[in-house]
């Protein structure tokens, strides 16, 4: 059972969190179909260190960036959105 660090509330257990996808830079609404499809559907899906957006839905409701190893589940870094990533 994961133990994740909410940047505001500190470490809490997995049920309080929701994975909210991979961080993505939103293209404008004038880009081609392939670029827009890549933004919507393509995933880096790294095996190993992986950048993710999570929310502390069962707590303060804030969203934050998490670097996490998708094999060992080790938490590498937790950042508030916009913090130096």
């Amino acid at each position: 059972m994961l133990r994740l660090p909410c940047p505001y509330c500190g470490e809490r257990d997995e049920p309080e969190f929701r994975f909210a996808g991979e961080p993505a830079v939103r293209p404008g609404s004038d880009v081609g179909d392939a670029v827009w499809a890549a933004y919507l559907y393509m995933r880096s899906n790294e095996k190993g260190p992986h950048r993710e957006v999570w929310s502390h839905a069962g707590g303060c409701g804030q969203f934050f960036l998490l670097e996490r190893d998708t094999v060992s589940h080790a938490v590498l870094r937790a950042l508030r959105p916009g913090e130096a990533s």
Binding site: R18, F19, N45, E52, T70, S72, H73
Partner: peptide, 10 residues
């Protein structure tokens, strides 16, 4: 519901 390559129960 979070990405994983760990074939472990939880």
């Amino acid at each position: 519901l979070y990405p994983s390559y760990a074939q472990r129960g939880n």
